[in-house]
Design a protein around this nucleic acid. Structure first.
Lengths: 216, 216
DNA sequence: TAGATTGTTAATCGATTAACAATC
DNA sequence: TAGATTGTTAATCGATTAACAATC
């Protein structure tokens, strides 16, 4: 069954997703072994950080050889849940919601988008790839019947909390929040935010700071 | 001219973007004063963290009243560069790239998408809102002429570094990386990553961990 | 074996929280 | 004024890095 799973700090979880991307790529290239300092160089980290992070996995490296990419990939997938099929629905059939529904990458990585919903009657009934936009009234039954794990919030900021509440009441266990606002959920429901507009602001600050530094 | 700008830790910058979203909302609602503990409650933080964070701004609160929302908003916008017009191009005219080009929210927040590029000749020439997809060969001239600050990577993982290199060579000062892979850039070019698929994996891990905790 | 790399411990660094004097 | 809230200092907490014995 492997070793008992310790609680993993969030900073480590974020890096584990990056190790997984890298090791998947390495395996495609036929690389069978990788050393901590090679992974570190590829991802802009230190070897020490990499070794420390990988101790959270039910997997060990071998002195002088490094980490077997096959076992490392399996261990990363197991701890991140990338070895499981997840079912998600998207709420919001605007540009972003439709684009994510059509994004094949998610399905390939184990996240099946099995429904798209919108409160706007003008959008309900429209096709989005293989799906049809459903009204919010169908959300609870659909989430329950299809055993949906994850709700993706691709709605305007003002609707975010209300839609989150509906998704939570429908029984999802996790929310991916793509809006800019903070969303409150009970402890049994995980929330992860991915705010592209906020990232642009981080970038804007970074550019200004770099310009200041260059100017002296 | 205000106080000299200290270096701001990245964890603080991320929260500053959230304070800005919140204070913009508060001002729309006509709220003129906000206390640190109110801001903290709204965003799931502690009052101490909020007060500590706001010391990085060229702005002060007033004991017993809190922070004036107008001044707070201005100070946040100044430090984050949200008071500036930024020009960005998107590379990758797939679902995600097209959706972001059409996303009015960015323009409203000061980020104008002024070009969309793709290496696929089949996509070049297609309309995306007010823009037309351009070939990669036009990237350097376009970035130079339009004084583009930011390049947005919405390409397949395998193309990410090569496209980043082209954007850097064209003269952008920042990259928003929407791919899963690590992108290397010289220090003068800022890179911020916003990985939706990685966020889904974080969520998947969180859901599994919560289920384990509930099971005991 | 000799040398390289892991896994782990200890040291450092940074970020968050607590506490409270200053102040409005 | 009395009480509430800021700004700041000190304490705590957590994450990263350095160092090195274990080991392949």
């Amino acid at each position: 069954m492997g070793k008992r799973i310790r609680h993993i700090p969030h900073a480590v979880i974020k890096r584990l997703t990056r190790y997984l991307t890298e090791v998947q790529q390495l395996r495609k290239e036929g690389v069978e072994w990788i050393a901590s300092h090679e992974l570190a160089t590829a991802l802009g980290l230190t070897g020490s950080t990499v070794r420390q992070d990988l101790t959270y996995l039910d997997f060990s490296g071998i002195a002088k050889r490094g980490y077997a990419t096959e076992g490392l990939q399996q261990a990363l997938e197991a701890v991140l849940g990338a070895d499981t099929e997840w079912r998600a629905v998207i709420v919001g059939a605007g540009n972003l919601g439709r684009a994510l529904t059509l994004h094949e990458d998610f399905r390939r990585r184990g996240f099946a988008i099995c429904g798209i919903f919108d409160a706007d009657p003008a959008k309900v009934g429209k096709r989005v790839g293989a799906l049809v936009v459903q009204p919010m009234s169908e959300l609870p039954a659909s989430v329950g019947r299809k055993k949906v794990d994850i709700g993706i919030l691709a709605v305007p900021d003002a609707a975010a909390q209300s839609v989150a509440d509906q998704l939570i009441a429908s029984g999802v266990r996790g929310l991916l929040n793509l809006t800019l606002v903070h969303v409150v959920a009970p402890p049994r429901v995980q929330v992860v935010a991915s705010r592209i507009a906020a990232s642009l602001l981080e970038l804007a600050h970074g550019i200004k700071a770099a310009a200041r530094a260059a100017a002296g």
